[in-house]
């Protein structure tokens, strides 16, 4: 699958911003490096190469989402099938160009896991998984804060947006991660909340 032009421009923009910020990590460079390593190349072939997400892709997305939003005193993203939701949203609401960017971003994550931690994302320890996502999160955060409005979103930001949206609008996310009642029955304009109380979810 050849990279569409907009993907290149996104990656080019990413390089420029990363360079601008004096960052050493060049995602594109890491991806190219990874392509030269047999295990990484195999991972690329296995991951998200089809036009639709297959069961393996979704299982992988569930693990990434569950690292972003793990089980704490409330269930994690996997329990809310957040990975499947992300895949559905990308397939049904993203343009072809956005989908290509998103998939390229997933491959970058997998490449980075293999290159820097010695195995694909799913095979990593919780600590290493978190380190991989921290890397991409720092990169997206810097990129998104510096980019022009017209420039494409960072793929990890796309993922983060969809994963948060999916988790917090799921039945678990509404009822357990937040407080939700379908029929509040009254409006109280000023309630004192206890420290640690969760948000009231919107309808």
């Amino acid at each position: 699958m050849s990279a569409p032009e907009h993907t290149l421009s996104r990656r080019e923009a990413l390089r420029q911003v990363t360079a601008l910020l004096g960052g050493a990590a060049l995602t594109g460079g890491a991806g190219l490096l990874a392509a030269a390593i047999p295990s990484a190349a195999a991972a690329r072939t296995a991951l998200a190469m089809s036009s639709e997400f297959d069961a393996g892709d979704i299982a992988w997305l569930e693990e990434v989402a569950d690292t972003l939003l793990p089980e704490t005193d409330t269930p994690g993203a996997k329990a809310a099938a957040t990975g499947a939701f992300v895949a559905l949203m990308v397939s049904d609401t993203y343009t072809d160009g956005e989908q290509a960017q998103f998939r390229e971003g997933l491959r970058d994550i997998e490449d980075w896991a293999v290159t820097h931690h010695g195995a694909g994302f799913v095979a990593l320890s919780p600590t290493d998984r978190l380190a991989v996502l921290e890397h991409f999160d720092a990169e997206q955060h810097a990129y998104m804060n510096a980019k022009d409005d017209a420039a494409p979103k960072h793929p990890f930001r796309m993922f983060k947006e969809l994963a948060l949206f999916g988790y917090f609008t799921s039945e678990i996310g509404m009822h357990q991660a937040q407080r939700y009642t379908e029929v509040p029955g009254r409006f109280d304009p000023c309630v004192t909340r206890a420290p640690g109380d969760r948000s009231w979810a919107g309808g």
Binding site: L69, T74, G76, L130, L133, E134, D137, R193, R198, S199
Partner: peptide, 15 residues
């Protein structure tokens, strides 16, 4: 916001 993982999630659950 910058952040991933359990603390990030627990913050996001609160207003």
């Amino acid at each position: 916001e910058l952040g991933v993982g359990g603390d990030f999630k627990d913050q996001a659950c609160r207003p």
